[in-house]
């Protein structure tokens, strides 16, 4: 039986600032990822890898081309469905963690469940377990300014995976961390991805990291996949 791909990108084009001076960022990108695959998008700044990630995350719409994630055609979604897609199909982690400073670790992890409409008791418990599983049982009531960089990213991982997404999108997840912490974070990610069979798309410009963390490397240059 042929498994349907987790992600399928066909001839994807993204042009910013139409009109007189259009800036083409993606110029016809195509690839397909199988469920559970771990892909590193490797390329220099400006190669279009972050734009591709945003399109995959449903934060932006392509100029042309097609993206299917877990069987959903993204360009066919209305804003409402797009929000639902971000909520349950994908999880995202960022280089700058993007935790909300005024909320504790637990409350940050609770956020996606709030928008999913889950009851308070249940989401509190789920968030606590998620934090435990990333090794932060002792930090649940701490606010981001009381956590280290590695701990920030652990909270972000817990938050990204708490709604059990089929795809995890990571934008330079270890870019702000020292090498040993980065190792820990990658190991942690790997455990979680394996446990749930989550597909990973990770943007990085670190060749070494890409080979260690990914099962497949997609190289990008000037808005095109080059290998």
């Amino acid at each position: 039986m042929v498994q349907s791909p987790a992600i399928e990108v066909v001839d994807l084009v993204k042009v910013y600032g139409g009109g007189v001076h259009p800036v083409p960022v993606l110029r016809g990108v195509s690839f397909a990822l199988q469920p559970g695959e771990r892909v590193a998008l490797l390329g220099k700044s400006g190669s279009g890898k972050s734009t591709l990630l945003n399109l995959l995350g449903g934060l932006d719409r392509p100029t042309s081309g097609k993206i299917s994630v877990a069987g959903q055609e993204l360009s066919a979604l209305d804003p409402h469905q797009q929000a639902a897609y971000r909520l349950s199909t994908v999880g995202m982690i960022f280089q700058s963690y993007n935790l909300i400073g005024s909320r504790t670790a637990l409350e940050n992890v609770e956020l996606p469940m709030i928008f999913a409409g889950r009851p308070a008791g249940e989401r509190r418990e789920t968030a606590r377990l998620a934090l435990e599983s990333v090794g932060l049982a002792h930090r649940i009531e701490h606010r981001p300014n009381q956590l280290s960089g590695g701990e920030h990213q652990r909270v972000a991982i817990a938050r990204a995976l708490v709604n059990r997404p089929t795809v995890l999108l990571a934008d330079e997840p270890t870019g702000n961390l020292d090498s040993s912490t980065a190792q820990e974070i990658l190991a942690l990610l790997s455990v979680h991805l394996e446990r749930h069979g989550t597909t990973l798309v990770m943007v990085t410009h670190d060749e070494d990291l890409a080979t260690r963390a990914a099962t497949r490397i997609v190289r990008m240059q000037d808005g095109l996949v080059v290998g």
């Binding site: 995350g57 934060l59 804003p79 409402h80 929000a83 639902a84 897609y85 971000r86 909520l87 349950s88 995202m92 993007n98 935790l99 909300i100 005024s102 956020l111 996606p112 928008f115 999913a116 938050r159 709604n163």
Partner: peptide, 16 residues
């Protein structure tokens, strides 16, 4: 703005 961006990325709808 950043907080709003985060919760949007996490799946908050415009209406919410």
């Amino acid at each position: 703005t950043r907080e709003i961006g985060i919760i949007k990325a996490l799946g908050a709808r415009n209406g919410q």
